[in-house]
Amino acid sequence: MIQFENFGAAFGERKVVQGLTCHFPKNSITAIIGASGKGKTTLLRVLCRMNDCIENFRIEGNIFIDGEDIYQPDTDVYALRRKVGMIFQNPCVFPKSIFDNVIFGVKDIARISKKEYPDRAEKVLREVFLWDEVKDRLREKATTLSQGQQQRLALARTLAVEPEILLMDEPTSSLDPKSTSAIEELTQSLKSRHTILWITHQHEQAQSVADRVLEFTDEAVNPLRPVAPIMKTERPSPLKNVLRKVQTFSE
């Protein structure tokens, strides 16, 4: 599904990822752990080419999704981003109604007719277990929701455009325990249809949610050591062989 080949990324002279080669199979949940500033977020962002607009951001190597190099000059970036959904650390809802938020992406991409909007909204809101909480207040401003609800709303908004890959950048770090477990449970249920990459700081969370773990390490002088303990997976640790280097530089 997702294949990094000798991938590296740098902001100007500062390299954040170097020589990464690894594979993420379809319908798997991979947890990515490691200290901050080690290129975890960059790894997710390059998958939907979010860093295109950052001046002096450079990459090397290749990234393939479904066998296609996504950094070709003729890549349809918008189609790519529809295929790859991303959830951020802090939930971001638009100051519009809940309903408008859910169909925000659908509206523009318009793959379904307007009549189907409510159905689509209901479907994805049910998927994120938010339907019962908001079904009576779809016209209210989304900003009135709690943080946990907002994060689930953001997830619903992303699911509504039916991405194949879900990138979650510490989606629970700003949430209370209850919302956290709701999101964790939810992610499990999404596994059947999506390939999920999940950045987290908590090892327990990684172990309970993910099939596999990719760890970005920072070992004193030599920051280059790859560690790839694999949990709850049928296949024995392909990552250990694949992850030759996860190289990070801290300043």
């Binding site: 918008y78 295929k83 959904g85 971001c92 638009f94 992406g105 953001a154 992303t158």
Partner: peptide
């Protein structure tokens, strides 16, 4: 920046980004 990014990851084109997010916001 979060509004732009939220729109971007949904696959909005730049034009859509402008009239769906930037102008209203």
């Amino acid at each position: 920046e979060k509004y732009r990014e939220a729109g971007m990851v949904l696959g909005l084109t730049r034009s859509a980004q402008i009239y769906r997010i930037i102008l209203p916001q």
